[in-house]
């Protein structure tokens, strides 16, 4: 009994050390920019840099667009599969998992070949086209997470009966999606959105190979050329990711946020 408890504590300690030691070391290092004392100089430099602002803003906007497009694709699909095509559930799930199986580098080379300047749809020829391509690529990357969250949320409500109840009240399919289904799977959509955002903010491969001014390549550039700033950036990125996770926890923990009366 006693030794078992000790073992558990030891395992716990090792686990925590494994995750926290590099984090603490990085944080400590990021504070050492000023010689001889701890300071937040590295953070000040990073946060004041125009490149940081631009790339971060770019990735944020891209992340939000990715989320919107992802929701528009995933929610109706998952709803329809659940309601009318339950036999296709396995297939659709498999398709949504593909981005996890295929390496990003393979995907992006595929994109460049398909949408390169000599193709029928030369998206990479213009900067806006490349932005759009990157965004759709991110929708693909976020698909496994978005689909999972939405599907789980849909399963937790009685989609079929709610749909029929609304239909017998005279509602059409869009009214049902917008007024009945969406509000009731909001927590699932939000957690899918936060996961997608966390992915987009740190993504490097797509952005770099499509030559977009995103946050990921900026991180890489700083990391290769500076000493203290990369550590500060790593801590900032980490904090952002965890803020997203925290929001998922908050939303997912069943806090009921009633939709206001209309």
């Amino acid at each position: 009994m006693k030794s078992g408890k000790l073992g558990a504590w030891l395992a716990m300690f090792l686990g925590v050390a494994y995750f926290l030691a590099p984090l603490i070391a990085t944080f400590e290092f990021s504070l050492r920019m000023r010689r001889g004392e701890y300071s937040f100089d590295a953070y000040r430099v990073v946060l004041a840099s125009a490149d940081f602002h631009d790339s971060f803003l770019y990735s944020t906007v891209l992340g939000l667009l990715t989320i919107v497009v992802g929701i528009l694709i995933v929610v109706p699909t998952a709803y329809w599969v659940q309601l009318r095509l339950p036999k296709l559930r396995g297939l659709v799930e498999f398709i949504t998992l593909l981005p996890l199986v295929i390496p990003a580098i393979v995907l992006v080379f595929g994109y460049v070949r398909l949408y390169g300047s000599s193709s029928i749809l030369p998206l990479t020829a213009t900067s806006l086209g490349a932005d759009a391509l990157l965004m759709f690529g991110y929708v693909g990357l976020g698909l496994p997470y978005m689909y999972r969250s939405v599907e789980t949320a849909l399963r937790s409500i009685d989609v079929r009966t709610l749909t029929e109840a609304a239909e017998s009240q005279g509602a059409g399919i869009w009214t049902i999606l917008v007024h009945i289904i969406l509000p009731n799977i909001r927590s699932g959509i939000l957690s899918g959105a936060f996961l997608t955002f966390a992915i987009v903010i740190g993504e490097f491969t797509f952005a770099s190979l499509l030559d977009r001014p995103a946050f990921g390549p900026y991180l890489q550039l700083i990391g290769a050329n500076r000493a203290y700033e990369p550590s500060a950036l790593a801590i900032i990125a980490f904090a952002l990711t965890w803020a997203c996770m925290g929001l998922i926890q908050l939303v997912g923990s069943g806090i009921r946020i009633p939709v206001g009366k209309r």
Partner: peptide, 25 residues
């Protein structure tokens, strides 16, 4: 005729109230 055009009221065993709406809504 589609269900939403039949003007038929339905009550389900599982109540099937819309969870996101008040009783009045």
């Amino acid at each position: 005729l589609r269900a939403n055009k039949r003007a038929i009221g339905m009550v389900f065993q599982s109540y099937a109230l819309f969870p996101n709406m008040t009783v009045a809504a």
